[in-house]
Structures are given as structure tokens and as C-alpha cells.
Amino acid sequence: MPVIKNTLEIDERGFIFDPQTGSSFAINKPALFIMKELKAGLPLRSLQEALQKKYGIDSKIAKMDLADFVRQLTKLELLNPDKVSPLD
């Protein structure tokens, strides 16, 4: 399960600051929703279902978008490197 770096500061307006690298990012509302749920420890499968329900999308799109987003998080080093495992 991907685990967000616990030092990340997530602003409710869709702004992320990594105090370890000094990098900051602007994210949209669905991304903010995912970040908050990941930080709360929600498993990917449950998060996918929550996305489907919240945004009224089918499971295939939810799964694809979620996987793509987690890939971006990995690339930007916003996940805890010790706790990342392949999706599913």
C-alpha cells in the first residue's frame, strides 16, 4: 500500500509542501481527496471505491486514474520509499 510521507503538509485548499525537500505542489480537488485518504491510511481498493462513489465514475477509470496518480507521487518522491509496494 502506498504511504504518503508523514512529514508532508497538506493544505485544505489543495497545496502540498514537503518540508524535507522544500518542494511545493498545487493539486485539484480529487487529488486532494486521494492525498487525505492515503494519509489517513485507506487501502487502495477502498480508495478506488470511494472515488467511484464520490465522483460517479466507473471502476476501470477510477483504478486507472488512481494508479496514474500514485505513479506521479512516486516520481515526485512524495511517498514513503520504505512502504511503497506495487499496486494491487
Binding site: F17, D18, P19, Q20, T21, G22, S23, S24
Partner: peptide, 22 residues
């Protein structure tokens, strides 16, 4: 204190920055 440069002038001088801790 650590600082990351966010914006540079054409002389490469930091014109904006943020504190961090690594």
C-alpha cells in the same frame, strides 16, 4: 537554517526561497 531557492535572478541570486529541513 536550510533554505531552498524558489526563484533566481539572471545572476543566479535567490530572489525567493523557503525553509526546509533535510
Amino acid at each position: 537554517v536550510q533554505m531552498k531557492k524558489l526563484a533566481l535572478t539572471d545572476k543566479g541570486k535567490g530572489w525567493s526561497g523557503v525553509t526546509l529541513y533535510d
